[in-house]
Simulated scan of single mutants.
Amino acid sequence: MNILKKKAARTAGTEPWHPYAWQAQSLLLAYPDENFAQRLALAGQVASTLPEPVARPLLRFTTHAAQTAAADLAIAYVATFDHRKRCCPYLTYYAHGDTRKRGTALLRLKQTYTRAGWRLGDDELPDHLAVVLEFAATDPGTGAQLLIEHRAGLELLRLALQDEGSPWASVLESVSATLPALAGDEREAVARLAAQGPPEEQVGLDPYASPVFLPDPVVGGPR
């Protein structure tokens, strides 16, 4: 998808540049496969046009990624997002853990995408951050609401990546910079999640599997 040719439309609560930022962030949070160099170059181009608080962390990441061997970046991605639960990129996990409620939350997300004309592949979960960001880029109003709804999980992921010294922490910093400042109750939600972790009931996710063992997402827009 060529984000330089996308038409930016202002929706309530968003700015015209939001879709470009969210699409660039989505490209950088997908698994660094053989097409990653192309996505990296495109994201870097877009980042240079964004407001400084959003652009600076994105350019920090693109600089690091451009200087890192592709195989090393892929290994780091798997080690970070697949092998560390606290760095889970699946947003509903933070609020619901492996419980029945998460299955319901996943279904609602998928229904939201379907209403907007999206159809996910069988190997994709609707709550992967890269997928949510790409959806937000195409439907800014609804997408912004989804990101704000999962703000506590986003911030917890950002902090976890920061603690790990992960380069992807910069991408999460950029995502946070596109959203309103944290309100008091959101700060409390982040603190509570950090202290307690998500619920631990290990049932009720069919037909969805645990995020730790899922294949890497293939993010490419509406199907």
Rank of each mutant, 00 (worst) to 15 (best):
R119I: 11
P89Q: 06
K110Y: 06
T114C: 08
Y90T: 02
G103K: 07
T114N: 09
L106A: 11
G121N: 10
G117V: 04
T99S: 15
L107F: 00
Y90V: 01
L107R: 12
H96A: 12
L125R: 11
G121L: 11
G121H: 10
R102C: 08
T104V: 15
R119L: 14
G117H: 01
A95Q: 08
T92L: 04
R119S: 15
W118K: 12
T112E: 11
L125A: 13
W118S: 12
R115Y: 03
L107Q: 11
Y93L: 15
D122Y: 03
H96L: 08
T99A: 13
R102S: 10
G97H: 03
R108L: 14
W118H: 08
T99F: 01
G97L: 01
L109S: 09
W118A: 14
A95T: 08
R115G: 14
D123H: 12
R119F: 09
Y90D: 02
L106R: 04
K101P: 00
L91G: 06
A116R: 00
G97E: 02
L109E: 07
A95W: 03
T112F: 10
T99N: 04
G117K: 04
L120H: 04
G121W: 05
T104E: 13
K110W: 07
H96P: 00
R100V: 05
L109I: 14
R119N: 14
Y93T: 10
L120E: 03
R115M: 13
D122P: 11
P89F: 01
A116C: 05
A116T: 02
L109G: 07
R100Y: 12
L120P: 02
T92W: 01
G121C: 07
R102L: 06
L109R: 10
K110S: 14
L109Y: 01
L125V: 13
W118D: 07
P89D: 05
R119D: 14
T99I: 02
Y94T: 07
P89A: 06
G97C: 03
G103M: 07
E124R: 05
T92G: 06
L106V: 12
Q111C: 04
A105M: 11
H96D: 10
L91M: 09
D123K: 12
